[in-house]
């Protein structure tokens, strides 16, 4: 006979255990990779110039935390990605909605936005440095660019898929243009907007690292690139781990909860 465990436990405990279990399932493969790494480097006697040991990377982490350089690089990168993303979202959402309202305009612009969505981010770095010089401006432009087209396109898509009857319902209940925008179009397009932000932030994060290698003297991308000149593979690997970890944290602590608290509650997308 199957025992109903949930009846014996308080709800918060069941839920806490479930999310702790989920986190463990997520971390386990990453830990396995570290374990293989820890065994493989001494086993095959790999040259530190080719690939560092776990201990060397841990040492580099300690050192860069102690002298404050890691925090400085992370801070610079996060500031850039935050600012560029913010500008991107603030400009893309209104534009996407304005275009999505008219079927003719949205049909006309869709290929254009798909084209620029593909180009978004890294491909713009050379021309951005020509326009803005090496530094803050060029990097912000690259991030803005990565976010803008993807979010605008997804917003446009979201607005154009809102059923006409919902707009009609709002109008027949007395909604004017402004209310239609804030009460119907914006929330109706939100699932797509969130998807756009998730994708755009992914592009932006990669674009940021690439741009920082070329166009600045602080940030995670810069940290990686400079370490290469000194054959400091342990710093390169540390930087790569930090880049990946920060992205996972942003995604799981910021974007996934945003999706859960709104869209899934409304039943507008099903959890996979």
């Amino acid at each position: 006979m199957q025992r109903d465990v949930s009846a014996l436990q308080p709800r918060w405990l069941t839920r806490g255990l479930a999310s702790a279990g989920g986190a463990a399932m997520f971390v386990a493969p990453l830990l396995a990779l570290v374990l293989i790494w820890a065994i493989a480097v001494p086993l095959f006697d790999i040259n530190p110039r080719v690939f560092p040991s776990v201990a060397a990377v841990a040492g580099a982490a300690m050192e860069s935390i102690r002298d404050g350089s890691l925090i400085e690089h992370i801070g610079a990168s996060l500031l850039r990605v935050g600012l560029g993303t913010l500008i991107g979202i603030v400009t893309a959402v209104p534009l996407g909605i304005a275009m999505g309202v008219s079927p003719a305009v949205s049909t006309f612009l869709t290929p254009l936005f798909r084209f620029f969505s593909v180009l978004a981010g890294i491909a713009w770095i050379p021309i951005a440095t020509l326009w803005f010089g090496y530094g803050f401006g060029a990097i912000i432009f690259v991030i803005f660019n990565a976010v803008f087209f993807v979010v605008a396109y997804n917003t446009l898509l979201g607005v154009s898929t809102i059923p006409l009857t919902l707009r009609n319902a709002a109008a027949s209940l007395g909604a004017g243009r402004w209310a239609l925008l804030t009460e119907v179009l914006l929330p109706g397009a939100l699932p797509n907007i969130v998807t756009g932000i998730r994708t755009g932030l992914g592009f932006a994060w990669r674009g940021l690292i690439a741009a920082e290698m070329i166009a600045t003297n602080v940030g995670l991308g810069y940290m990686l690139f400079v370490a290469r000149d000194f054959y400091r593979t342990e710093v390169i690997i540390l930087g790569m781990i930090v880049i990946g970890a920060i992205w996972l944290l942003i995604d799981r602590l910021l974007l996934v909860p945003l999706e859960r608290s709104t869209i899934e509650r409304w039943g507008m997308v099903r959890r996979a």
């Binding site: 059923p163 009857t165 919902l166 009609n168 319902a169 709002a170 027949s172 209940l173 007395g174 009460e183 119907v184 929330p187 109706g188 939100l190 709104t262 409304w266 039943g267 507008m268």
Partner: peptide, 15 residues
């Protein structure tokens, strides 16, 4: 608003 409508597809706001 002086003409209220009830739709076949309900047309409730899901959000």
């Amino acid at each position: 608003p002086e003409r209220g409508v009830v739709f076949q597809s309900f047309a409730l706001f899901p959000w």
